[in-house]
């Protein structure tokens, strides 16, 4: 455990200094929120009489979390490339603490980006109506999503041969929120896409966030979202343990 803490400290220091990535990670949420609210928002009918900004905030939160988490893959590839992982291993540090360090740093980065999205959203008219329990529940679901996706991304990093290849994963993950309820209701999608969009894990996470933040009844959705995250996290931890042995054996 203490190894994981030292590794987290390392990953945090390094992300703080990676100014390019930091600017991207923080500018992206701002730009996306402004684009969706002011460029597209006026033309999108969400089928409710609430403002589009209120509809879209959970989607933007998720898009940013996905993008931010997938950067974990790049950090892992870099570590493999420099040989520092061999040095850690020769100090008898296993793969789990090293990856956990990157995942923890990713969570910290993404929580900062999340705070930024909330602040900006408030400034442009986002008015959540979450209950007292709704806030921590919403943040919990978002954090679960971030952890699951970060660890999945770490596994992808162990699979990738170069940072460029790992970057491809970022692109893939950034695309996933579009076929969901993140930005538009699914009613207008062709039926085959709607089937996917309504059942994919990102929709479950978004609907949980939306419901919890707006104080609507959410039923089982948050539990389904958490189950998805737990499943992805578990599979990623197992896959990354196997990949780590294979890659470094």
């Amino acid at each position: 455990m203490s190894d994981a803490l030292i590794m987290s400290g390392r990953a945090l220091r390094m992300s703080r200094r990676n100014v390019d990535a930091l600017i991207t990670a923080l500018a992206l949420p701002v730009m996306l929120l402004l684009i969706f609210v002011y460029f597209f928002g006026g033309a999108i009918d969400t089928g409710t009489n609430q403002q589009y900004v209120t509809y879209v905030v959970p989607g933007v939160l998720l898009l940013c979390a996905g993008f931010g988490s997938s950067n974990t893959a790049i950090a892992v590839v870099e570590d493999l490339k420099t040989g520092i992982i061999d040095r850690f291993r020769s100090l008898d540090i296993g793969g789990a603490p090293i990856l956990a360090g990157h995942v923890a740093a990713s969570a910290a980065r993404n929580l900062v980006a999340t705070a930024l999205v909330f602040a900006l959203a408030f400034a442009i008219g986002f008015r959540p109506a979450a209950t007292l329990a709704g806030w921590p529940a919403a943040l919990g679901v978002l954090l679960a999503f971030i952890l699951a996706l970060s660890w999945l991304s770490a596994a992808v990093g162990l699979l990738a041969k170069s940072p460029e290849a790992a970057g491809g994963f970022t692109f893939f993950v950034s695309f996933l929120p579009y076929p969901s309820t993140a930005f538009v209701p699914t009613d207008s999608m062709p039926s085959w896409l709607r089937g996917f969009a309504e059942h994919q894990p990102i929709t479950q996470v978004i609907e949980s966030l939306r419901g919890l933040l707006l104080g609507r009844p959410v039923g089982w959705t948050p539990w389904i979202a958490l189950a998805w995250c737990a499943g992805i996290l578990g599979a990623s931890v197992a896959a990354s343990a196997w990949l780590f042995r294979r890659r470094t054996g």
């Binding site: 030292i6 220091r13 200094r17 420099t82 040095r87 100090l91 540090i93």
Partner: peptide, 22 residues
């Protein structure tokens, strides 16, 4: 190893302190 296995984005002292703690 053949390539310096140190973190570029940490200072020399940080690299050493980290390894010393591990």
């Amino acid at each position: 190893g053949q390539f310096a296995a140190v973190d570029e984005m940490q200072t020399g002292a940080e690299n050493l302190r980290m390894m010393a703690r591990l």
